[in-house]
Design a protein around this nucleic acid. Structure first.
Length: 832
RNA sequence: GCCGGAGUGGCGGAAUGGCAGACGCAGCGGAUUCAAAAUCCGCCGGGGUAACACCCGUGGGGGUUCGAGUCCCCCCUCCGGCACCA
């Protein structure tokens, strides 16, 4: 008989809810633990990836609660975003209705899975009582100078009809959401000055010891710090000076050209000075290069293209004139958009000059080698060496040369040391409807004016019709757009762009600490108690998106005094769970390999689904979905059920007091007691420290097998069996909370197992009477035998050598050495 | 190209430098059953043997060690990230 999960699971979900078992408050007398999963987008229904993410989180939350922590474990919805607009067009529903109905459905699914959230704290970012605080935070950022509006070339997705942040352009230049190639457009947009925090975002990575190394590395690469010199050069026969940034100021004597990006303002300046046909030629070339998409640009690879402007820069170190080129490999938004070309020591510059016949002058030679001949070089030599062809700096090793020449530039007032980052400011405007309205007003007289805080929220109208072609309906809503200027009172227009949804998700974890707060985004006392998040769990795809933005927000909130000064990082420990794979591919509708969580829960119950997910693979690795594996998990739970049910009267009536080890006479009783406590020890360690939830399940399966074959006949034996069953149920409770709760009650307990304290290991029980020792001869395993436990190294060695079996094995050979490891093995090294 | 991560049975996966393959899945044999499902018992890396013994085996090659899946060096393959970042 299989157990009746369909009756048991709803029963306990109801009891937990009625008894408010998982509701928590800040309490300074208790040690807190904040366990958090990346909240879902309410797309309609949970998928297996969600189930995995939350099963991991719930396991930890339940385990730590039983360990005595005050555990904050909340859930919410990242509810703004494009899919709601697309669904609205397709299904003729308002984005709000679609979103809220999805939220309710997914909440029901989460409850059905038995996750132990404090549901009073549910947050929906599209709720005005949440996004009002997005607007408020935006205004605080604005006041602090962290928000600015700029006309700039930005990433544009034709399909989504909106701009994108740099972080949202992925895979060599396509939109992160729809995969459409991104193009550049010149637009006025709102930016957040995340680069002000670039250095701290980088430095603090070293403190994130609880993060996976690869996420830290990805962020380090993304921020991309480099040190160099920013310097000026005169342009011959003009009043202009051009600025360049280099990390290799030691190679300045090797500059044989200067290259500027197609978007560089000097393209136009040169065209104007040159005039005539040359002007047309320059403009046409720059236009052609600049119009290339990100994909085309990166696809260019080693093949480079340029045009000589006819102008010359003067090299400040030696006064030489070098030609200025427009080149397609120069990026407009890194450094100054212009470089000094040193083909001898930079491969890109080298590739370029070989095409256009520009000279190569080596200025670094190998420490023990001659100066190479520039004309004969086949590739650039970027490695450190010794300066040459560099006037007074000749003979200096590269690092020293950088130091000295940097000093020289600073002394001459021609340049300064500078740190450059790859990280760009965060473009947060979106030309979309379903998002937080940016609280700004445009007044003809006063210019850009922020909405006063007491006029918040700027409410998003809900009764809209999304144009079938996409686009933002707010633009045509006179009642939304038309307003009055808060400064002069004259008619003015509202900003119709909304915020990037990543703005919403950058502080939702702060909101969870006090979601009912109405006068601040979150309560300072609650945030102080609960923050930072102790364990965060989610997918790696957010490594350079959400996880950077949230770190940035935390630093700003800390600087604004909203969070305590010492909370500089939001997430102490990060677990990036692997994907759910089936038939060799990620589950996806287009491949048709999707397994629906609802179906699995209907067929086997939530406990089985959760157990399988946690057992099939360690949390950070990909999980191979196996229908047979699910059956195996279900089989195991039924075995546990039978273990209790078939011997229920004995277990129920057995004394609850634990029998001390020294009072146990029977060897088999002692042995089962040892197994119980070594299992408890291993399971505790696996969950707590190793985060190896799969091996903990394996241990519990072993314990179950041992208990099934344990047939006690005495009161002492029954008591030990009860201890074993209770230990098993307690350890299994975070994996299969409903069934274990039912069995816990069946054997006569009246408390709630979900929050009953985790059992303590009885150290006395761990000691075995005998232990198995492996005998090796010259490092090869030969046999195993048992000895009385606790023998010292010397005793063990003596014991082994006195055995007749051992003597037979080493007969006629000379013992060179004996290595004895108590509790493990003896290795006899022999000769002959 | 640079930076990470990973390569272990038919499969998912275990192994503080100390019995490689725990646990599960699949498979094979048996019990139970009129039969099946469910359940229970046994076998289950390769070679070798009647059975033992023994030999080989953690991507490949070296090294350290009494002893290496684990540590060090070189190489191969796969996955992920970044990539004309000056």
């Amino acid at each position: 008989m299989a157990y009746d999960f369909a009756a048991i699971e709803p029963k306990w979900q109801k009891i937990w809810a009625e008894q408010k078992v998982f509701e928590v408050e800040a309490d300074d007398s208790k040690e807190k633990f904040y366990c958090l999963e990346m909240f879902p987008y309410p797309s309609g229904a949970l998928h297996m990836g969600h189930l995995r993410n939350y099963s991991i989180g719930d396991l930890l939350a339940r385990f730590l609660r039983k360990q005595g922590y005050n555990v904050l474990y909340p859930m919410g919805f990242d509810a703004f975003g494009m899919p709601a607009e697309n669904a609205a067009i397709k299904m003729k529903l308002s984005p709000a209705k679609w979103t809220f109905s999805n939220i309710e459905h997914m909440t029901e699914q989460l409850k059905r899975a038995g996750y132990s959230y404090d549901w009073r704290r549910r947050v929906e970012t599209c709720n005005v009582n949440y996004y009002k605080w997005n607007q408020w935070l935006f205004l605080q950022f604005y006041k602090k100078g962290l928000v600015y509006r700029k006309h700039a070339p930005v990433n544009w997705c034709e399909d989504c009809q909106t701009v994108l942040a740099n972080e949202q352009v992925v895979d060599e230049g396509v939109c992160w959401r729809c995969g459409t190639p991104v193009v550049k457009r010149d637009l006025d947009q709102w930016f957040i000055r995340i680069t002000d925090y670039a250095e701290e975002l980088l430095v603090c990575l070293d403190d994130l010891t609880g993060w996976p190394e690869r996420v830290v590395t990805m962020q380090r690469n993304w921020i991309g710090r480099s040190e160099g010199v920013h310097f000026k050069m005169d342009i011959a026969d003009t009043d202009l000076t051009i600025e360049a940034f280099t990390t290799r100021i030691d190679t300045t004597f090797g500059m044989t050209f200067v290259a500027i990006a197609a978007e560089h303002p000097f393209v136009e300046a040169f065209a104007e000075i040159a005039g005539g046909a040359k002007a047309d030629e320059l403009r046409a070339f720059a236009k052609r290069i600049a119009s290339r998409s990100a994909i085309e640009r990166t696809a260019v690879g080693g093949d480079k293209e340029g045009m000589n402007t006819g102008f010359f820069a003067i090299n400040p170190v030696n006064g030489k004139k070098v030609p200025i080129w427009i080149a397609d490999y120069i990026l407009t938004d890194y450094g100054t958009g212009a470089i000094m070309g040193v083909p001898a020591h930079d491969q890109r510059d080298f590739d370029f000059v070989r095409k256009y016949d520009i000279p190569v002058i080596p200025v670094v030679r190998p420490a023990d080698g001659p100066i190479p001949n520039g004309d004969e070089m086949t590739e650039a030599t970027p490695a450190d060496g010794v300066a040459c062809n560099s006037g007074e700096f000749d003979g200096l090793p590269t690092q020293e040369a950088i130091e000295k020449i940097s000093n020289w530039f600073e002394k001459q007032g021609l340049g300064e040391r500078e740190v450059q980052y790859r990280l760009r400011d965060w473009l947060i405007s979106r030309q979309r409807y379903w998002g937080t309205p940016i609280p700004m007003i445009y007044c003809e007289d006063c210019g850009v004016v922020p909405v006063p805080e007491d006029q918040l929220p700027v409410e998003l109208p809900l009764d809209v019709e999304i144009p079938p072609t996409g686009g933002n309906p707010l633009v045509n809503r006179a009642d939304f757009v038309n307003t009055t200027c808060p400064v002069c009172g004259k008619p003015a227009k509202r900003e119709t762009d909304t915020m990037d949804t990543f703005f919403c998700s950058s502080w939702y974890f702060d909101r969870y600490t006090s979601p009912w707060t109405t006068d601040t985004p979150f309560d300072a006392h609650d945030a102080k108690y609960w923050m930072p998040v102790d364990q965060y769990i989610g997918g790696i795809e957010h490594a350079c998106l959400h996880l950077i933005y949230a770190r940035f927000f935390t630093k700003v909130c800390s600087d604004l005094g909203l969070l305590p000064k010492d909370v500089r990082e939001p997430f102490k420990n990060l677990l990036t769970q692997g994907m759910v794979i089936k038939d060799g591919a990620k589950m996806s509708k287009s491949i048709g390999n999707v397994v629906d969580p609802d179906e699995i829960m209907s067929k086997y119950g939530a406990d089985t689904a959760r157990l399988f997910i946690l057992f099939a693979s360690p949390p950070d690795k990909d999980l191979d979905w196996s229908d047979r594996g699910v059956e195996g998990a279900n089989r195991f739970l039924n075995r546990v059920w039978r273990l209790v049910e078939t011997d229920l009267e004995n277990i129920k009536n057995a004394p609850r007091e634990r029998v001390a080890v020294k009072e146990i006479a029977e060897a088999s009783d002692k042995e089962i007691k040892r197994i119980i406590h070594s299992t408890l020890e291993r399971v505790t360690r696996d969950i707590r420290y190793e985060r190896q939830f799969n091996t903990a399940v394996a241990r519990l399966m072993e314990l179950t097998n041992a208990l099934l074959s344990y047939k006690p006949e005495t009161a002492v034996g029954n008591s030990i069996k009860r201890e074993g069953v209770e230990t098993l149920l307690s350890c299994l409770s975070p994996y299969a909370p409903h069934m274990t709760e039912e069995l816990w009650q069946m054997i006569g307990n009246t408390d709630c197992l979900s929050v009953a304290p985790w059992f303590a290991v009885d150290e006395d029980a761990l000691a075995a009477e005998e232990e198995t020792i492996v005998l090796q001869i010259n490092g090869k395993v030969r046999e195993q035998f048992t000895v009385q436990s606790g023998l010292s190294k010397v005793e063990l060695e003596k014991e082994v050598l006195s055995r007749s079996e051992t003597k037979a094995r080493i007969e006629g050979k000379e013992i060179v050495k004996v290595i004895a490891v108590p509790g493990r093995l003896v290795n006899i090294v022999v000769k002959g």
